[in-house]
Simulated scan of single mutants.
Amino acid sequence: MTSVPLLTTSPLSGFGVEVVMASSAALPGAAGLLVPHDGEPVADVRDRPDRWALLTLLAGAVRRRVPVLAWGSGAALAGRVLGARVRPGKGAADWSEAPRGATVERWQGEVPLLWRAGPVTAWAGETLPEDLRSEFLARLMQAEPRAPGSPLEVVGGEAVLRTMLADFYARARADTLLGPVFAAHVQDWETHLDRVMAFWVTMLGGGPAWRGNLNSVHAGLGLRGTHLRRWLALFREAAEDCLGPEAAAPLTARAEAMGHRLGQRNAPHVGRVP
């Protein structure tokens, strides 16, 4: 850790090691990212471009598997990035529910006080306990240099992938061409999202979560090439907006290859929309 920086999103002193202010450009070489409590809102960030920028930075760290230690409002930011619901604090900092798949190690009433998900360790309290600080630094000292893992890890893991897919389907459902198709064929969106998640986890090297035949799943919908092209365009937009072009590349490349195969098998009525 001595040759690479430990980043922080807010000015921080007395942490025990030198820290530098975080930026997107510094993330690839960062040893870790600290997201301290800053007392600013998380649940409602309308008209707050500074908070959106911070969320984008934190999402970039998660995608790159940079170890993150967040507390107070920082923990709520981390939860929001991972798709968790954030609740306004009552006389205290906003706090997040535990993200899907997170391990909660300590509760304080209904608040998940200490939780971990992927590279993130989050403490909902406004003051970071000394044992968590020491544990995080020890983990950084022992960590091997990060190397690119599976495409799923490049994307940012399952929680980030699910958030991106939910965003894509929100766009598709609102689309004048694709919306009516989904409305006619999908009634239970949570189950549908689970199924699509399993497909993409498998396609991105995350294990055999999905088994099936892509053509048979989408047969009989009577869709044409215009639907497929629109699906691919919206998918690329959602992936690049949520993940950034670099992290989105494994997804968009596979989506385009999948579209090509479907087009060949189903011409001239191509485009069985997933």
Rank of each mutant, 00 (worst) to 15 (best):
A209S: 12
A209E: 09
L178E: 08
G225N: 11
L223D: 07
F199K: 13
T176C: 12
M197A: 14
N215T: 12
W200N: 09
L223M: 12
S216W: 04
V196W: 01
A183R: 10
T202D: 15
W210V: 07
M203K: 15
G206Y: 02
L177P: 09
V201D: 14
L223Y: 05
A184T: 01
Q187D: 10
R173D: 02
M197I: 10
V217M: 13
F182A: 02
G179N: 09
A209R: 14
M197D: 15
D175Y: 11
G220R: 14
F182Y: 15
P180Q: 02
G222D: 09
L214P: 03
T176N: 14
D188F: 01
A183W: 01
V196T: 15
L193V: 01
G225E: 14
G207K: 02
R230E: 00
A174S: 09
V217Y: 12
A219E: 10
G179S: 13
H192T: 00
G225P: 09
R195I: 04
V181F: 11
G220E: 07
A233M: 07
G222S: 05
W200C: 07
R173A: 01
V186F: 15
H227I: 02
H218Q: 14
A184K: 04
R173H: 00
G220A: 11
L193K: 10
M197T: 15
L228F: 00
L193E: 04
H218C: 05
R229Y: 06
V181R: 05
D194H: 14
T176Y: 05
L204Q: 11
R230I: 00
G220C: 06
L193N: 04
T202P: 11
L193Q: 08
G206W: 02
G206C: 05
L221M: 14
G222L: 03
H227T: 01
W210D: 07
N213I: 00
E190F: 00
P208H: 09
G225A: 06
A209Q: 14
A183S: 08
M203T: 13
L232W: 01
L204N: 11
W189P: 03
N213E: 12
G225S: 11
R173I: 00
G205L: 12
A183E: 04
T191F: 04
M197L: 13
G179V: 13
R230M: 01
R195G: 11
L232P: 02
F199N: 06
G179P: 12
S216Y: 03
A174I: 06
G225I: 07
A184F: 00
L223V: 11
P180N: 00
T191Q: 10
N213L: 01
V196K: 04
L228R: 01
D175I: 15
A198R: 14
A233I: 03
L214E: 08
L178N: 06
G179L: 12
